[in-house]
Design a protein around this nucleic acid. Structure first.
Lengths: 248, 248
DNA sequence: CGTTCCGTTTGACAGAGGTCAATGCAGGGG
DNA sequence: CCCCTGCATTGACCTCTGTCAAACGGAACG
C-alpha cells in the first residue's frame, strides 16, 4: 500500500551497509542535552559511546524490521524517521515519526514491534541492544530519561488513538497539520516543509492518499492553509484549524 | 456518546469518597510478584507502602479525570478499569484497559492525559504522585519495572493504532475477541466473560454499538463464536477468527 | 409471576470515505 | 530546454459504516 519507493530502496539494504564511522565526540554532540544521555557525565558518556557507533542512512532505507529480533537501539542525531506496521494484506500504518534527539529500538525486549525507516537522510548513534540494556541498568539516570521519554511517547500515541478511532477525515488532516507545526520548524514565510509524502500522511492518519489530498485541497479553497509545491504548507488560520481538529 | 451509566455514576463521586483503609501487608499482596514493586525487598516495600493507601472503588466510578492535575498514581490490586479520552463534541475513545497488577496514573508529568474509570469493582494501592516520583527516583529497581511496563504498554498501544487505522469492522471485532482471550480467563466451558459492555467495546474499537453488535451476530451466525447472554463469548474457531483479524 | 427498565439487536437509509481511472504538474535527466 | 517519470489532484461511482428508529430480551423489582 505504501509506494514502491520503500520496497525498492529498502529491500536490498542490510543495516551493515549504512556508513558507520568510529567514535565521535559526545561532548560536542548536537543533541547532547536533549537525548537520553543528557544526564550522564563526560566519562559515562564516553563509556556509552564506546559501546556504539555512528550510522548514516539515506532517505528510504529501513533500519529495523517489524518482528525481527531486537538487536539494535539508537539515538537519532539528525533527520526524520517513521515507525510502521502492516496488516497481513499489506496495508500500512505509521505508528510514530521520530526526530533528532529521539530514541529508537526496543530495549529490554526480544522483538522489534515495528519497522523503522528513514524519511530523510539521517544520522544515528547505534548501540547493540544487549550492551545498551546492561549499561542502562547500571546507570539509573539514563533509565530515568528513557522512562520519561517512553511515558511521553505513550501519551502521544494514546492521543493518536482518539484521532484514528473517533475523528473524521477533516479532523484528522487538521490535527496532523497542527502536530507538524509543533514538530517542524517553519521558514521565514511560515511555510512548513512536511517530512512526509501524501501517501505517508495517509498512512499516519489511517486514510487513503485521495482522501488526504481532497482534504488538503478543500482547506486550501477555504483559506485555512496555503500549499507550496508538494511538501510545503503554510497555516493561514490556526484557530480555524484548531476548531476543525476538534471536529466542526 | 458513552451511556448515561458513566455520566450518572461518576460525576458526583470525588475520589476521596472511595473507601480507603490503612496500610496493608505488602508481603501478602495478591499482585506482589507481578506489580512494579515486585523487585523491592520487604523493608523497601514497607516504606513505599507508608506513602500510600488502599482505595476501593465501585464499577462505574472514575478515579482520575482527563486533563486534571496529576496528583495520584496507583497499582491495581484487583478489578478492571478503562483509560479513556474524548473529543470536544463528546465522542469517547477507550485508550487502554487495565487489569490486576497494572499501574495507572502519570508519574513525572503535570497532567493526567486520560480518565481512569472502574469497569468492575476494584481495589487500588494509591500513592500521591509527588511522593511516588521521589521514591521511584531513589529506587532504580522500581523505575526499571515501570520502564519495562511502559515499554510494553507502548508496544500494545502502537499495535492498536494499526487496528484503528487500517482494519475494517470485522477485523476489529475479531482482533478484540482474540485479545480478550489472552487477557481474561475463560470458565470450564471456554466462555469468556467480557469486562466491557457493547458500547464500551465500540469505544475501544472506534466503532458504533450497532456495528459491533452486527459483527458479533454475524460471527455467531457463521459459527466462529457463540454468545452466552450479554457479556459471555465462547470462541469456537480460533483459527478462523485469527484469519478474520488479519483481514479476510 | 408479571412488569418495567435498559442494554442489545435488527432494519432501513444516508453519507463519508474508499476504489478505480484519468488528468495535472513538479522535479530530475538527457 | 524539453521530456519523462512518478507523485498528486480531481472526478465518478460504490461500499461500508454511521444514523435513526423500532423491536427484542434479560435482569431486577414489586
Amino acid at each position: 500500500m505504501d509506494s514502491q519507493f520503500d520496497l525498492a530502496q529498502t529491500a536490498p539494504i542490510p543495516i551493515a551497509v549504512g556508513r558507520t564511522c568510529g567514535a565521535h565526540d559526545c561532548d560536542r554532540c548536537d543533541v547532547r542535552d536533549r537525548a537520553i544521555c543528557a544526564d550522564l557525565d563526560s566519562p559515562q558518556r564516553a563509556s556509552l559511546n564506546r559501546l556504539g557507533r555512528r550510522l548514516t542512512v539515506k532517505a528510504g532505507q529501513t533500519v529495523m524490521w517489524e518482528g525481527e529480533e531486537s538487536t539494535l537501539v539508537a539515538n537519532v542525531i539528525d533527520g526524520t524517521l517513521k515507525l510502521s506496521t502492516s496488516t497481513g494484506d499489506g496495508r500500512e500504518q505509521i505508528v510514530g515519526v521520530v526526530y533528532a534527539s529521539d530514541f529508537i529500538g526496543r530495549p529490554f525486549g526480544a522483538r522489534t514491534p515495528h519497522s523503522v525507516t528513514a524519511l530523510t537522510d539521517a544520522r544515528l548513534c547505534l548501540y547493540p541492544r544487549g550492551a545498551f540494556d546492561g549499561f542502562a541498568r547500571e546507570h539509573p539516570s539514563l533509565e530515568h530519561r528513557l522512562l520519561r521519554r517512553t511515558l511521553d511517547d505513550l501519551d502521544r500515541t494514546r492521543s493518536w488513538l482518539l484521532l484514528l478511532g473517533r475523528k473524521n477525515a477533516r479532523g484528522k488532516a487538521a490535527t496532523f497539520l497542527l502536530d507538524m507545526r509543533r514538530r517542524v520548524r517553519a521558514d521565514e514565510e511560515g511555510v512548513i516543509e512536511l517530512p512526509l509524502s501524501r501517501q505517508q500522511v495517509a498512512d499516519v492518519l489511517g486514510l487513503t492518499i485521495e482522501t488526504v489530498s481532497r482534504q488538503m485541497s478543500e482547506m486550501k479553497r477555504m483559506g485555512v492553509i496555503a500549499l507550496h509545491g508538494r511538501r510545503g504548507v503554510r497555516i493561514v488560520d490556526a484557530a480555524w484549524l484548531e476548531s476543525m481538529a476538534e471536529g466542526d
